[in-house]
Design a protein around this nucleic acid. Sequence first.
DNA 1: CTGAAAGCGCTTACAG
DNA 2: CTGAAAGCGCTTACAG
Lengths: 338, 338
Amino acid sequence: MKEVTLKQIAENLGISITTVSKALKDYPDVSAKTKARVKEEAANLNYKPNVFAVNLRTKESKTLGLIIPEVVHHFFSSVINGIIEQAEKKGYLVIILQSNENFELEKKQVDLLISKRVDGIMISLASTTAEISHINRIKELEIPLVMFDKISKLVDCSKIIINDREAAYKATKHLIDRGCKRIAHFRGPLLPQNSIDRFLGYKKALEDHGITYDSSLIYICERVNYEDGRKAAQQLLEDHDDVDGIFTNTDLIAVGTIAVFNERGIKVPEEVSIMGFSNWFVSQAITPSLSTVDQPGYEMGKQTFKMLRKEIKAKKKKSAFTPKTVTLPTHVIQRNST
Amino acid sequence: MKEVTLKQIAENLGISITTVSKALKDYPDVSAKTKARVKEEAANLNYKPNVFAVNLRTKESKTLGLIIPEVVHHFFSSVINGIIEQAEKKGYLVIILQSNENFELEKKQVDLLISKRVDGIMISLASTTAEISHINRIKELEIPLVMFDKISKLVDCSKIIINDREAAYKATKHLIDRGCKRIAHFRGPLLPQNSIDRFLGYKKALEDHGITYDSSLIYICERVNYEDGRKAAQQLLEDHDDVDGIFTNTDLIAVGTIAVFNERGIKVPEEVSIMGFSNWFVSQAITPSLSTVDQPGYEMGKQTFKMLRKEIKAKKKKSAFTPKTVTLPTHVIQRNST
DNA sequence: CTGAAAGCGCTTACAG
DNA sequence: CTGAAAGCGCTTACAG
């Protein structure tokens, strides 16, 4: 099957390639009659423009790049969902890369997307990302860029986030309101801003409510997953016997914690209240169901794409674009673990 | 910042574009000395070939398309993970589209990927896909194609699957082995092959073990999710009081079922045993933990990409390629719900 | 209203 | 060993 080109149509109709091209794009300086003939012939031959040629001419690919720490992840996959749905509606396709929380891989992936000449990049940083020169290179090349969720405050670009500190404050306050006096925190790694902010929100809530902060109640979960939650819970049980509340960095940690407590016959929430973060599907399915903070993944994806599109449009019109930060609301969801 | 092109390098060095191009690609007919000079200059200027031009010339995009029913889905996101990891290693990027189990959307997405001129397409069909002319069009255009998990037997292409019938047979037999005599099946929709096969495996297991098949014990879960599982469970409780085992089409249905039973004080597995399918993360986290069948998502993604790559390579060499079907092994995982 | 021509940036068959 | 030339398929400024 031979590919149909403008040349083909032009020859069939005995007119020039230029006119065919203009007719198909509804240029005003082509007669209605010619337009009709061209369009009919194009439809008959089922003409589809060669995107490779169009890309080369227009210097646009109508393709966006997305770098995300993990794909098998309720929250991030919800973000993907929000992004690709919106993008498709507006004629953009999305290349998805997974950094696997790995800084080196993330750097390579940024290079890959740049050399692919995507029209814009969306990124949520890996937990091990220690510096941001690779991100700044995106800015230098003037490629539209939006960061979401796991951002760096050092990069001057649009950001779609939640207020992690405030959300963590609310979560911790919820434990305090439920009567907890000695509250541990299973936090994420040291680098990511959101893990820092959640820790700070926790600490502030304690201080504001007359509870002394005790650093021995802080446990670090490097991979922020179920296994880490189990380990932290086991360690906590060895170290302390007076903890009556735990605020975890994310739901999976809380699920691991509850699993250990269930196995050991420790009653949740009677003996210890547990608070998750993110509202994964699993949090409503376990027993006891998990109180948590709702983190709007789908909406975050949607807003991320929309912001990127604004920047792309501004760039095309060569009009100025000032990066904006959008903070999405969160709220505590009370279930049976608190 | 001006883009660096071959022309730029050629001018700087006072040689032709042709020679620069050949030097960078290590053509044997360029002197070692010239190659060295060209490579040095290219490195200095941080030259990156313009992919748009390369695509146009080589008629290759080094980009693949993936259409998947749902992204926020443990199994499918694992498949995505397997695909994009392998693809990236081999220099391919992947555009991901979500059909949302919608036939019409799936058709449009196939068109989109075709017009994007991806080098190959990987697809898992939507549950509502009623006919496959859109898939056959991919074949007609000679675009390499691999189907996985939710396939159509009518399409002549490579497939990466599990033996759904056998897996369902094993799952049902497991319930029988655990002493169940009256076993219901919460099945998926009527169209998808895997939902049909799982139903047939269930039926066959009953027959082989002297249990009469009773169509009133079959409930259809259209969206195959938690809510559907809850509804089916509630309906079952109204219709029957003698069921002692349930085999569900997928884990989420089982999770919804267990939730209803927990709320009503029906003991699992003492009164009813429940068997899931797919081994989602959630199945190990709930109480009681869910017995299920392991469905290797990551491996399926990996094999899907590998098969597609073989076909792409064969096409490039214009050598014949015979579609193959790979069936991945599954096994029953016993936990506390049976 | 129509079309010749230049050009996007690369690759490669061919001549010398 | 080097390079002029054609060409991938499109877009668009310009001339008529």
